[in-house]
Design a protein around this nucleic acid. Structure first.
Lengths: 259, 259
DNA sequence: CGCGGTGTTGACAACAGTCAATTACTGTGG
DNA sequence: CCACAGTAATTGACTGTTGTCAACACCGCG
């Protein structure tokens, strides 16, 4: 969708000025991909994204990024997980946060520490406050619409997670999640042809899918034997998308109209 | 919390003008309870709520309330469920919508029909468009903050639902849900002393909890035998709150600070 | 070389789903 | 007033999926 405008927007990435400004092209690429997938970007909006990409902050793996009152940030590289720690020591991942996602999906409160966002890999984020500020002003009208769509997408993703946990078997859950991740990563240019990098241990996957480590493994082995999917060296290859989609009851998101 | 302002706000309910204006006092009561639980209401805000309560619309049970593009509404009486219908005929309830909740939690899109909101009982809703409109304007500053808190609460509730489905046993899920419902209903004055009306069949409960009808029943019977909880005639009585909270790992929500 | 983290596999136990039969409660029509 | 059908709740017996425990392989690292 919107192939032409995106191409035009991405052309900026070739400009030599980027490097002299200390901007990571891959960071700007993520931002541009994400926002141009909803609506063509105006020049003002492209400029705004370029400003954002200028000041990235880095977090090491396993670092807890506590929410309380800090301004919103957007991930431009690496993966994070929004977790709930349970009394019995178990951990449930509410939502995986990928490049192009806000770290905290919505207006957030000071929640009682049961919520945390943990960096799963080396993580790069940029300050998203200018974006949020731009929503109120009239300067970037389509950005405001885009932000609403993104908020809704976050809500829909939690719905998908609920369906996985509530109604699917281990294998179905895993496949469903892989298809979702592929779709989300493809939106920011980090997945192609059913292939993407997935820096998750079985333990984290078990935390996402609400099952034990052992059974995540069994599901992966079974899918591998059935030649439906391959996982190796942190890379996932979806071999037969149609079969996988039928198996997990997953469908690519249809056109997004804003209310 | 905010006992004094709420009492002042509720005093309006005694005014005889209400009945002549065709306003259901119970509807206004729900609206007033809900909004005054976050911040004291100004007179302008009270007036806005009173206007809302004037024009309620009614839906029969089992009626599907389709979302696509319709303006937002708020429930003032009755229960509804936001569902996902699966290909194999199973149904997963994403979120129960109670009096004082927006029917569609957030900015909504035209989603591909897999999402639906179904009235579980006779349902009364009011047009929430004036509320949403008031958020942008400067007339009701605290209402805008309240709306953000409510959006976040909706998100937190989905997180709770995910934890239930991902990490808890049948009994724990049921108790956890009952405690959540009690808390949410208490916020709109529909629960007291561990006692509230719950118009849900076992089938709907199974749809919420991601388990089979039979097992919902077994859990209820067990809790009844243990004298922890009683369900009869559509009424739930939580007998030992502390034991139940410990059993389900549930804690009452702490103070809500806005970011 | 030993160590910790991660992945892999098997055996068994615990939990939850399915099927089926029975009961209780409603509203309807005779 | 009763018989009836339809829905919901309840219970038992059995099956199937998943969790738990344990052992082992692999790998990078000090």
């Amino acid at each position: 969708m919107a192939a032409l405008p995106r191409a035009r927007a991405l052309a900026i990435l070739e400009a030599p000025a980027l490097h002299s400004a200390g901007i990571q092209p891959s960071h700007l690429r993520v931002l541009t991909f994400r926002f141009s997938s909803f609506a063509p970007l105006t020049d003002a909006e492209s400029g705004l994204l370029q400003d954002l990409a200028g000041a990235a902050r880095s977090y090491p793996p396993h670092r807890d990024i506590r929410a309380a009152g800090t301004p919103p940030r957007m991930i431009v590289a690496g993966w994070a997980a929004q977790c709930r720690q349970l009394a019995n020591g178990q951990r449930q991942v509410i939502s995986l946060r990928l490049p192009g996602d806000f770290v905290w999906p919505l207006a957030q409160l000071s929640s009682p520490s049961s919520y945390a966002v943990t960096a799963l890999t080396e993580l790069e984020t940029v300050d998203a406050q200018p974006l949020v500020g731009a929503l109120a002003g009239p300067a970037c009208p389509s950005l405001a619409r885009t932000a609403r769509v993104m908020a809704h997408l976050d809500y829909m993703l939690l719905g998908d997670q609920i369906v996985r946990l509530g109604r699917q078997t281990v294998t179905e859950r895993f496949v469903h999640l892989m298809l979702e991740l592929h779709e989300r990563l493809a939106q920011v240019g980090l997945a192609e042809d059913g292939c993407f990098a997935m820096p998750l241990t079985l333990e984290v996957l078990a935390g996402v899918l609400g099952i034990s480590v052992v059974h995540v493994n069994r599901a992966v082995q079974q899918l591998r034997r059935d030649c439906l999917l391959e996982v190796r060296d942190g890379t996932v290859m979806l071999l037969r998308r149609e079969r996988l989609q039928a198996l997990a009851g997953w469908a690519p998101p249809t056109g997004l109209a804003v209310s």
